[in-house]
Design a protein around this nucleic acid. Structure first.
Length: 279
DNA sequence: CTTTTTCCCTGGACGC
DNA sequence: TGCGTCCAGGGAAAAA
């Protein structure tokens, strides 16, 4: 059994967002300890930590796979978990953990612990001047918001020669889709991940649009995929892994046509596909 | 402009 | 048992 790191994508980040938004708004951040200087690079950890001391926390938002923890004054703390970043919301004394990169101590003894085995996660403080326009310059449309229509998807893909899988993973086009949900959406739509992004028929494009939204919503509904040991911020595993139809299922029968699932390399990513029903 | 490549990291799998 | 090597992958930046 190969061990695959559980990479948080839009549904996993949204699951964490909801839990933090339930727990944090209105509370005071008494103290912040940032253990790994890489987390806040290039800003020194001490600078970020001192800025956070005594701040009141506001609503927690999400943009793509970025978590945005609101602070008084309109600032926000922007966290990206990348590959192995985890958030642990813990009451009282925090559990013994490995790879701890930051500890945010909340009044009444609760803590938000950020851990990250591979140290790719990033944490930065953004000022109130950072507008939506600046976010939109780096990130594309939110796939679960009304602006993401089939026509919008088609316009984004139009003329692109790169693979449809690479296009789905490009955060500047659509924000939040990662390797798991790209594979699952392409399977649900019956589209081969190697196809040129701009070459889908209207019908295929509409099917893919629907599949993207359907699979992401399934991920949120099941609190995300817990492939290896992913747990949400409360320590509970999600159940989306039981709904995966092709991802990590190399050699197993396609649930639709029984053809064995094959593993390819597309867009520099491990890519699982049913060559029987993805065309 | 689009697309590809490189880099950043760690630890588990694998070969000898 | 103990090394050395390869690999996974999100996003930023550089290169093509």
């Amino acid at each position: 059994m190969e061990t695959i790191p559980p990479v948080p994508e839009l549904p996993e980040v949204e699951t964490i967002r909801r839990q933090l938004d339930e727990a944090l708004p209105g509370r005071t951040l008494e103290h912040a300890t940032i253990v790994d200087e890489r987390l806040t690079r290039p800003v020194p950890p001490a600078t970020v930590a001192s800025e956070l001391r005594g701040r009141r926390l506001g609503r927690v938002r999400r943009r793509g796979k970025f978590l945005r923890l609101g602070l008084d004054g309109g600032d926000e703390l922007v966290l990206h978990l990348r590959m192995t970043g985890r958030v642990h919301l813990e009451p009282g004394n925090s559990a013994e953990r490995t790879h701890v990169r930051a500890v945010l101590s909340i009044a009444a003894g609760d803590t938000v612990v950020i851990s990250d085995q591979r140290r790719f996660a990033t944490l930065r403080l953004a000022g109130p001047a950072e507008t939506d326009a600046e976010w939109n310059a780096r990130l594309g449309v939110e796939p679960l918001e009304p602006g993401f229509t089939a026509a919008r998807l088609q316009a984004l893909l139009d003329g692109r020669m790169t693979s449809i899988k690479a296009a789905l993973l490009d955060q500047r086009l659509v924000a939040g889709i990662g390797n798991i949900y790209a594979d699952e959406a392409l399977f649900a739509a019956g589209v081969d991940p190697r196809r040129p992004a701009g070459g889908l028929t209207d019908r295929e494009n509409r099917g893919l649009h629907r599949a993207i939204r359907d699979r992401l919503r399934a991920g949120i509904r099941t609190n995300g995929a817990s492939i290896d040991s992913f747990h949400d911020s409360l320590g509970n595993p999600g159940t989306m892994q039981h709904e995966l139809r092709v991802h990590l299922r190399e050699g197993q029968a396609c649930p639709r046509c029984r053809t064995p699932i094959t593993k390819l390399r597309v867009a520099q990513r491990g890519t699982y596909v049913c060559e029987g029903c993805q065309r």
